[in-house]
Design a protein around this nucleic acid. Structure first.
Lengths: 236, 236, 236, 236
DNA sequence: CATGAATGAGCTTTCATTCAT
DNA sequence: CATGAATGAAAGCTCATTCAT
């Protein structure tokens, strides 16, 4: 079986682009289209501003200006600052979920498939830095916004499921030990990549060296892969 | 050689308590003592408020009231909100460094020593949650405050050094492979523990389960230990 | 040719009244009219407060209260305290320019026309004391506000031009010497009137006598007229 | 009679230097001398700061720092901000009076003597720009500080007296008309020079040309001299 | 639908001044 | 005498939000 490319072209998940209208939707009138465009540009701007300055540091005014719109429009479409932030989080999760679901793996090659998952997440974090800062801001607020979201539940990581198949396949084939759950491996991968990137500024100051050079990034990628493979007991 | 306790009593690093006056110092006058107390209570309050609400979310007013002092005093002692935050970060690093330096290990027992390091950091993060949120806030600001600190350089993690000895000792004894650096192992430990705790709110929502039950915490501790030991190639 | 009255009724330049809407403008909605009224009342109040207490001595709060409006509105309409002050200066210049342009002179009677110019400026300074204090405040700040104004250049004293015609006419008729420029005569008139009024408080203390009695004012007016006429070489 | 130099070397009135201890005073102790030095440096700094930023724009903190002293010392020596400003004004008047009293004229040559008075004042304003801005600030406050000064009365312009002698001498000799008072001529000289320098920033913006070039300054000096001489009816 | 205008509470910071040793 | 510490009011300005067309 040919080893299919692990994931679609990277460009796909790069820019935060709100959802296209659902396929079954009717053609929209010009006004509705314009309204959607306004909403989208606000959501886009809010993502950028909240990612950069956090929830408290980002201001409505800053966002409406960045969206070339007006304060009032934010309240029109999102009700409040909190409502806007919730929408930003939902959109962020949706895009992440979409990206994960585009991850195509060959479970017949569990070792390489596992490597692909790691590379995917490591790459996603790097290409979507707002993903990290938005999550950090939300955790600073103890998850109070996401817990208000009705849609949050819809996004259950497809990657964990895929990972389960990979691990099971590996165990069946005797390349992996069978005693680790997909959830834990997923957390391990996330932790190693996320922490490194999220904390790179204070770590640089603390360790006295840059973590952002291409060499340093490549080194950490192979470190992560090695650590995860050893954890699942990969025999090589 | 007997396996000495890995670290001093946990209580030592729990509350943010500014440094005691140097041993050689003269006795202070009443007023000087009161002044120090004011400064300390502001620092203490600021640590709490910034840790809870972030840099932007925490207000000068909130801090001065929590310290039972006045806005003006913050500027008297720290110059600005930024200056206060820098002082908070410095104090946080100092306490972390102190705690790390109190970590006593028996390098003759590298396996157990490594376990102790992991447990120490895992424990420190749990007992000092402000450590995590302050660092996250600072990373949101791309490290701009800590890079202004002149004292930041003084705090170079003693734990990394100790870890190096442990790894070397283990390698000499043939219990560890010798191909991993102390820095990388340190980062790995930090990543696994920090990420789990820092992101527990959004992870809970995403995974649909609590990560904070005693069982979950204990499970993750043993997961981390196993992952790290496997990474360094511990033969057991 | 009959000697027409030198200027329109004095009341015209007394109160700082913002420009009426341009003739071609559409009728304004109620809200737009109210908005203009708000802006105007702020500008009016600011003129009064800055004139009375200077730029630094006048507070935003004082102004917004005097305008029966809110602090926020000042920033809404003028952006900043500096922006408001610039608007005040521009408005002051515009009104002064308007008043100067209403000055109608009979150049066929150069001597009387020159006297009219002097009386006009002397009268303007007295009727518009804010003109003097605003200019003094701006000069204390070394002209930094007016130099930021884009509109400042639009106000080139019409009086200097008129004065030039008067002097030329007088020279042609042999009543004036032809060796003084309009600019210098303008400065001389301004200096004599402005300084006397601007510095009347310290001069009173220094000279030990009041300069503000009607007799004193009338005396200085004729002194100025005599001095200027002699300077331009008026033969009488 | 030889034309003696009209005034002492210019340097004499350049720097604001507080009064030396009165001639009859006892020798001072070291402490008293140090105290005086502190007081002087505060007065010096206050003169500079108030001259630059006005009464309201200058802050106690700014002054105490410029004087390399402490806020508290200002209250110790001058009681309040107002008290300090009054002292600054008194010192300014004293220095101006001193400079005027050093003005030595040959009344036998009234024409040249009058020219000397004009040049002296024109020069004094230029060498002591703080003189102008301090007076403007005080006039903005309607002279309320100087009217509180007990010492203000002591400073009655010697120049007016001298000018009276010059004018009388000129009248006796038939070079001047005898119908102008010394006070009015004094005011005229002051007005022409003071206004030109005080308002140079707004005038530059209004007239669209610099008034501060050496050529412009020289031109205005001769303009003033000519205007004053004509006013007193000098026959040449 | 969209948008200028309005609102009052809150922000960080500086003010002149006084206390206590 | 001198000086660090303290004080509360007020400064200029921004905040998220709502009103009224």
């Amino acid at each position: 079986m040919p080893a299919r490319p692990a994931r679609r072209p990277a460009a796909a998940d790069r820019t935060p682009r709100p959802a296209a209208p659902p396929a079954g939707a009717r053609a929209l009138g010009v006004r509705q289209r314009a309204a959607l465009a306004t909403r989208d540009s606000i959501l886009r701007a809010a993502t950028k501003v909240f990612a950069r300055h956090g929830y408290d540091g980002g201001s409505i005014d800053q966002i409406s200006k960045a969206a070339r719109s007006y304060d009032r429009m934010i309240y029109y479409y999102f009700g409040s600052k909190q409502g806007l932030f919730i929408a930003v989080l939902e959109d962020m999760y949706r895009r992440f979920n979409d990206a994960e679901s585009r991850l195509v793996l060959d479970t017949a090659q569990p070792l390489e498939a596992l490597r692909s998952v790691i590379r995917f997440m490591w790459g996603y974090y790097q290409r979507n830095p707002e993903f990290i800062t938005l999550l950090n801001t939300e955790n600073l607020h103890r998850g109070k916004h996401i817990s208000k979201s009705l849609r949050a539940r819809e996004y259950s990581s497809p990657a964990v499921g895929v990972l389960g198949q990979v691990l099971a396949s590996g165990a069946r084939r005797g390349v992996f030990r069978g005693d680790v759950t997909a959830r834990d491996v997923y957390l391990m991968i996330a932790a190693l990549g996320y922490f490194y990137l999220s904390n790179r500024f204070t770590l640089s100051a603390f360790l006295g060296e840059s973590l952002e050079t291409p060499a340093a990034l490549a080194h950490w990628e192979s470190f992560m892969i090695d650590a995860v493979l050893r954890k699942v007991g990969a025999t090589r």
